[in-house]
Amino acid sequence: MNAATIERLGAVIAGIVVAVVAFYALYKDWRAEGTENQVFKLMLLLLGLGAVLALLAGLNVVGFAPPKGA
């Protein structure tokens, strides 16, 4: 197992955790009111999407495989 594989594995596992946490927090906050909570909801949504993207990048679904370590 080389470094790139460990990094990818880390990205996938931690990505799942972060995405789940972000979407769960979004779900819990769904009915919250007030200006800052609306912003928080948007931010959490984007955060969760970011985690999903990183996860998919770790799985090599999106992005290009780097020439080294593949």
């Binding site: 790139a4 990094e7 990818r8 955790v17 993207l53």
Partner: peptide, 14 residues
């Protein structure tokens, strides 16, 4: 290098 960046991104998102 996508692999390292993905890992590092997850750190920030976390």
């Amino acid at each position: 290098d996508v692999a390292f960046a993905a890992w590092n991104s997850v750190v920030l998102f976390g």
